[in-house]
Design a binder for these strands. Structure first.
Lengths: 144, 144
DNA sequence: TTAAGTGCAAAGGCTTTGCAGCATA
DNA sequence: TATGCTGCAAAGCCTTTGCACTTAA
């Protein structure tokens, strides 16, 4: 996993522009998932002339450099987050739309088992759960 | 899980049109995943005036009736498949794009564990793997 | 007969791309 | 200075929708 604390190290070999610096900072500050549109909304506050095209081009670069990961969380648009050394998975609440991250050691075991049994080489594993978060579950119970 | 062998039972309450009959038949015959565009290509062979709009509207109906499931397999478009009683998960090869289904009992255990630990009510679980299938892995080894 | 489905074309959302000008190294 | 990035606008996908016509029940 790359060191993303130091931007200048992180994107060595590519020009470090003000836009890229800003965007990576914003993604880092988002502290979770963010999609292109929301990133654009936040970026405009600091740089009112930045364009959506730059957002997309930067996201692609960051992804290729391994700085961020792209997720498809059942929604229409992709979500991005800073690459994290610790693997984690996602739960999306059907009521409130909240995305909750979790992790569980069984997942690695599962990946290992599947690789062995099926002969795959796995480069990426996503475990995606959908349902009701604790709060919304309570609400449902109360209303019924 | 609904009985999809008998179309007239399956979509009770909604008009059974020639288009719907055709589309459900094609999805069933696809025997795996199919996206809207490919479904459209095949449908046109039998009904050259069918429209993409009808494909999408039918897919949505089928999905709402629980006849088919929608998957987001890392690609741009959604894929659909007949709802199956046996849960299964997906592996997508990064080289050849092939989608391989597999199942593993550990998954249910994992879902159970997460529900307990996190307090979620899980209504849908997807385990998505990406990597190299056995054939493409061999090819890579040979070329290097 | 009537509520619902269909085809067509247009529009919508998300993402990519061509191009001329600008900035980084 | 030269390569590569940027903003802008246009275009590209995939999907949805408005409308007038048609069809299943």
């Amino acid at each position: 996993m790359r060191n993303i604390r130091n931007l200048d190290n992180a994107i060595t070999g590519y020009p470090i522009t003000a836009q890229r610096r800003l965007l990576l900072k914003l993604i880092r500050e988002a502290d979770g998932h963010i999609d292109a549109k929301e990133l654009y909304r936040r970026a405009i506050r600091s740089d009112e002339s930045i364009s959506l095209a730059t957002i997309y081009r930067s996201l692609r670069l960051f992804r290729e450099l391994g700085l961020v990961e792209e997720r498809r969380l059942g929604q229409l648009s992709h979500h991005y987050e800073i690459s994290q050394p610790a693997e984690h998975q996602h739960f999306v609440c059907r009521d409130c739309g909240k995305v909750i991250e979790f992790q569980n050691p069984l997942i690695n075991k599962l990946v290992g088992t599947v690789q062995e049994e099926q002969g795959f080489t796995v480069t990426r594993a996503e475990f995606y759960l959908e349902g009701y978060c604790p709060e919304c579950r309570l609400k449902k119970v109360r209303n019924e």
